[in-house]
């Protein structure tokens, strides 16, 4: 029961973090500079998120040649095609092929 209550409290506080600005700023006009700065949130957060996924808890990179090649291919294909699905398939193909060759 205590664990369930903890899960519920964490869920509620997590919801509050998602809702705080969406709800509180509903009636406020955003200054143009603020809107332009918000454009940088996505690259900053997603860049940090990607690197977090690629590093271990000890602060070391947990990727090898197949992963690096896959990531380079993914970025190149998405920039060229503007299609994440094609980028994903290309990257995984490179990752699996190189992985099998190297091992």
């Amino acid at each position: 029961m205590t664990v369930l209550l903890t899960i519920a409290v964490v869920g509620f506080l997590g919801y509050c973090m998602r809702a705080v600005f969406i709800v509180s700023l509903a009636k406020h006009a955003f200054p143009p500079l603020a809107l332009r700065v918000l454009e940088y949130v996505a690259p900053a957060v997603m860049g940090a998120l990607v690197m977090t996924m690629l590093t271990g808890a000890e602060g070391t990179l947990v990727i090898g040649v197949p992963e690096v090649a896959g990531l380079v291919v993914a970025a190149g294909v998405v920039v060229r095609t503007r299609n994440v699905g094609i980028g994903l398939i290309s990257a995984m193909a490179v990752f699996w092929i190189l992985g099998s060759v190297i091992s």
């Binding site: 454009e39 996924m53 690629l54 970025a75 998405v78 990257a91």
Partner: peptide
């Protein structure tokens, strides 16, 4: 998963300033 988010990151950068930030 990181491949997916890298792809979405690539979609979100349309100016050199955003590339620097990322």
């Amino acid at each position: 998963t990181p491949v997916l988010f890298l792809g979405l990151l690539a979609l979100s950068v349309d100016r050199w300033e955003k590339v620097v930030v990322a």
